[in-house]
């Protein structure tokens, strides 16, 4: 199972074992990682599972579809080039050790 490391805005790190095929959002909720709200539970409708990914590993995350692309402009914390909605990112083995930073607010 790939390990994902969630980092809170204050710097606290939490390593969790994610299940392949789940989304990063689901991995966070399953392990009670705070900072991911996910009001719509993965429908890409609420923009409350925003997270920042590693710059040099963006290509591992899969493409951003039009709907997510639009929604990312409306996140509560600033959108950065490394921003994704974590519900739209599917966990793969290649993501082992990936660092996911959580924003100040959702």
């Amino acid at each position: 199972m790939p390990k994902i490391i969630f980092v809170q805005p204050c710097g606290t790190r939490r390593e969790v074992e994610a299940t392949q095929g789940n989304s990063i959002m689901e991995a966070a909720l399953k392990h009670g990682v705070t900072g991911i709200t996910a009001e719509c539970n993965g429908s890409a409708a609420c923009a409350t599972c925003h997270a920042y990914f590693e710059d040099d590993r963006l290509s591992q995350l899969g493409a951003i579809e039009a709907h997510e692309e639009d929604m990312l402009d409306f996140t509560a914390s600033e959108r950065l080039p490394v921003s994704r909605l974590s519900c739209q990112v599917t966990v793969t083995d290649a993501m082992d050790g990936m660092i996911v930073r959580l924003p100040e607010s959702q």
Binding site: E39, N41, S43, A45, C46, Q106
Partner: peptide, 15 residues
Amino acid sequence: KQSHLGFGAGPHYCA
């Protein structure tokens, strides 16, 4: 600021 359930939650979250 805090989440509420006025738009529901889950897959049927208010479109």
